[in-house]
Amino acid sequence: MAKVKGTVLVNTERCKGCELCVEACPTKTLALAKKEVNDRGYHYAYMENPDACIGCAACGIVCPDGCITVYKVKL
């Protein structure tokens, strides 16, 4: 089976910390920042487990604010 590896970029200033991406992620890659907040005071999403990302883009698709860009390579 070809292995895939993905990564996501979060526009942390646009993120509202709704957590829908965290919920949608099948590999538990994403989490909300525990302490850090953006300029609007939201705990933004970030890759807590970057190695787990498979680039499925579920996070990007469900993000209501279009904060997430997803990249993927086949290894």
């Binding site: 590896k5 993905g6 990564t7 970029l9 646009r14 509202k16 910390g17 709704c18 957590e19 829908l20 939201y42 970057p50 680039g55 883009a57 990007g60 698709i61 209501p64 604010d65 279009g66 904060c67 997430i68 860009t69 997803v70 990249y71 993927k72 390579v73």
Partner: peptide, 28 residues
């Protein structure tokens, strides 16, 4: 990550037609 983040590896991003204006909608 740097090696993955290349235009040819892009699988999802916000549509171009949606601009960068911060949306007033509530989270989620």
């Amino acid at each position: 990550a740097e090696e993955i983040i290349k235009p040819e590896n892009l699988v999802y991003t916000k549509p171009k037609l949606m601009n960068d204006t911060h949306m007033h909608y509530c989270p989620g």
